[in-house]
Design a protein around this nucleic acid. Structure first.
Lengths: 96, 96
DNA sequence: CAATTACTTATGTTTGACGTAAGTAAACTT
DNA sequence: AAGTTTACTTACGTCAAACATAAGTAATTG
């Protein structure tokens, strides 16, 4: 079973940034002063984009930190929706 | 010393939602099926808006989850900026 | 062939969101 | 007035996840 079509920020990093720019995870890790495993795990979808990571990416790539955190937010919301935890559906919208 | 003007999502919840609607934290907690302390801590800026919390707020208030997570994102980024952690400034933007 | 590049995995720490529970107090019910 | 519900806070322990260090394996480059 697949998490059909929910795209992790690490995938974006790899496909839309590293590969087109001819960069390796190793080089990026050096350039933004983080351990290699942090990047390795992000790329494999095993770690989220933290505020710290988003800021570092943004400095290096010239994007905004919100771009990266927004990708993470979208991903997390989608994951949660697929989960469909029981009691959330029972919530009734407020009526004054 | 104050965290000048950085506004926590809990403050928004209280001032822009609970108070105008005449709602208490107690009632909201019941309505969205979470423990009271989760709300209490959010309102006092001691806990962040998680994906779960954002979805529950959105169901009840008719907002989007991204509204709440966006507030949290803005807050976290601002906090991080005020921190000014040393090595982040050393990052050089990528040049092909 | 040695050093650097490149990536992964193992291990341990710490932070923070979580729930349970207990405490206090005020505001209603009966 | 006593008891229930509302209202909020704080203490405590758990768990997941982001973190760093470090070690291991390959491939590439000087």
């Amino acid at each position: 079973m697949e998490k059909l079509n929910n795209i992790h920020p690490g995938e974006v990093l790899k496909v839309e940034f590293l590969e087109p720019l001819g960069l390796t995870a190793y080089k990026l890790a050096k350039a933004i002063f983080i351990p290699q495993n942090r990047l390795s795990e992000i790329i494999h979808g095993k770690r989220s984009i933290s505020v710290d990571t988003a800021i570092r990416f943004s400095k290096f790539f010239g994007t905004s930190p919100k771009f990266w955190l927004g990708l993470q937010m979208d991903y997390d919301l989608e994951e949660k929706k697929l989960e469909e935890s029981s009691d959330i559906q029972e919530i009734k919208a407020f009526q004054e």
